[in-house]
């Protein structure tokens, strides 16, 4: 058994002739919080879906616990996903189920546990995210931050060894952001899990991540610990970390010469 729980090896993925990823290599060591950062549309979320086996790579492979994800049959995929928990961007809570039933959902569906034990488990998980008192509420009654926490409780309901976060900080107020931030770190350490965070919020991510990959143009543009990356002199990383308008990521979408195009139309 390798020390890396997830390995991405020369991974390419794309639709038709436009490749989103061109030969990505990443490793995710056990017990660490690893972040994947990059601009919008750089294929970060797609990477998570590739790890989860929801889509198949065009080339290369993703290995989880040494097993190639896209070669699994239904049963193998089932086993792999049992070890994963995923927090979706907007929580993806089931709107017709209460908070309690949402957290209980994976336990009920995948285990044959008796209802009394499910109750204890659910309340435990909800307590971990500080929402035990809200277990009777319905998802529409929750604030954005609370919904995210309930979804987090659901993601860890079956004690996964890999927890994936898709933009966990997007659209939250600063307080909720801080809460989620703390939860990700503390849950990771408490469960002994490996966390993969996809985000573009530099400040929060750098606070909790052990290691960060920067993705740009379908490739890993930079990698390292947050400390190294802040001091990085790579132009792209510098632009991203400091939020500058123009740089290697251009302000303008690729276009023909401005003057020439204006003349043509006229």
């Amino acid at each position: 058994m390798t020390s890396h729980i997830v390995e991405i090896d020369d991974l390419s993925f794309g639709y038709k002739n436009k490749l989103l990823h061109k030969g990505i290599n990443m490793v995710f060591p056990r017990g660490k919080v690893v972040a994947i950062m990059g601009g919008s549309g750089s294929g970060k979320t797609t990477l998570l879906r590739l790890i989860g086996g929801q889509i198949k790579p065009t080339k290369g492979e993703v290995r989880v616990n040494g097993e190639v994800v896209h070669q699994q049959d239904r049963n193998g995929m089932f086993k792999l996903r049992r070890q994963m928990g995923m927090l979706f961007q907007h929580g993806a809570l089931f709107t017709d189920l209460s908070v309690f039933d949402n957290v209980a959902f994976p336990i009920r569906e995948l285990t044959g546990l008796p209802e009394s034990m499910i109750r204890d488990l659910v309340l435990m998980k909800l307590n971990a995210v500080g929402l035990r008192g809200a277990h009777t509420l319905m998802p529409p009654e929750l604030s954005g931050g609370m919904a995210r926490r309930v979804a987090l409780a659901r993601a860890i309901a079956l004690d996964p060894s890999i927890i994936m976060y898709d933009e966990p900080f997007a659209g939250l107020d600063p307080i909720s952001m801080g809460v989620i931030c703390d939860l990700i770190r503390s849950l990771n350490d408490a469960l002994g899990a490996t966390s993969i965070i996809v985000s573009h919020d530099v400040k929060e991510t750098f606070q909790i991540a052990d290691y960060v990959y920067f993705v740009a143009n379908g490739e890993v543009a930079a990698e390292g610990s947050p400390h190294d990356l802040i001091q990085s002199t790579l132009p792209f990383v510098h632009q991203f970390v400091h939020g500058e308008k123009d740089g290697p990521v251009p302000f303008h979408y690729t276009a023909p010469d401005y003057q020439q195009e204006l003349m043509q139309r006229g």
Partner: peptide, 25 residues
């Protein structure tokens, strides 16, 4: 509308990631 919204809010994806088949569930 219900299924469309479940899809739009990633509820179906979430189910898939929990190893629950959305078609059967």
């Amino acid at each position: 509308a219900e299924i469309g919204l479940m899809k739009a809010t990633e509820q179906l994806s979430a189910m898939e990631m929990m190893a629950v088949n959305p078609i059967s569930r």
